[in-house]
Simulated assay, not measured.
Amino acid sequence: MREPQAKPKEEQRIAKLLARAGIASRREIERMIAEGRIALNGKVLDTPATILKSLAGVTVDGNPVQQAAPARLFRYHKPSGLLTTERDPKGRPTIYDKLPKDLPRVMPVGRLDLNTEGLLLLTTDGELKRQLELPSSGVTRTYRARAYGNVTQAQLEDLIEGVEIEGVRYGSIDANLERRTGANTWIEMKLTEGKNREVRRVLEYLGLKVSRLIRTSYGPFGLDDMPIGYVDEIRPQDLGIFRKTLK
Rank of each mutant, 00 (worst) to 15 (best):
V109P: 00
K244S: 15
R200V: 06
R169M: 11
E198D: 08
R130I: 07
S217W: 05
S25Y: 05
L40F: 11
L177N: 01
R197M: 12
A15Q: 13
G182T: 02
M32R: 14
L40R: 12
E233D: 11
D158M: 09
L103N: 04
G110D: 06
A69G: 11
L191Q: 04
R212D: 08
L120D: 00
G57C: 11
R72W: 10
R200W: 01
L73D: 01
K195P: 02
V199D: 02
T50Y: 11
I95S: 00
L83N: 04
V60A: 06
E127D: 15
L103H: 07
L191F: 10
A69K: 15
W186C: 02
R27A: 07
Q131T: 11
I33F: 12
Q237P: 11
L99S: 06
K9F: 07
G240Q: 15
R197S: 06
E193N: 02
R75I: 07
T94Q: 11
R92C: 06
I241E: 10
G110T: 01
L18S: 00
L99G: 00
I51A: 11
E3Q: 14
K244Q: 15
T181R: 04
L119I: 09
T245I: 14
K190H: 10
N63D: 15
Q153Y: 13
K101G: 01
D125H: 02
Y76M: 08
E30S: 08
G182V: 00
G219T: 01
D225T: 03
R146I: 12
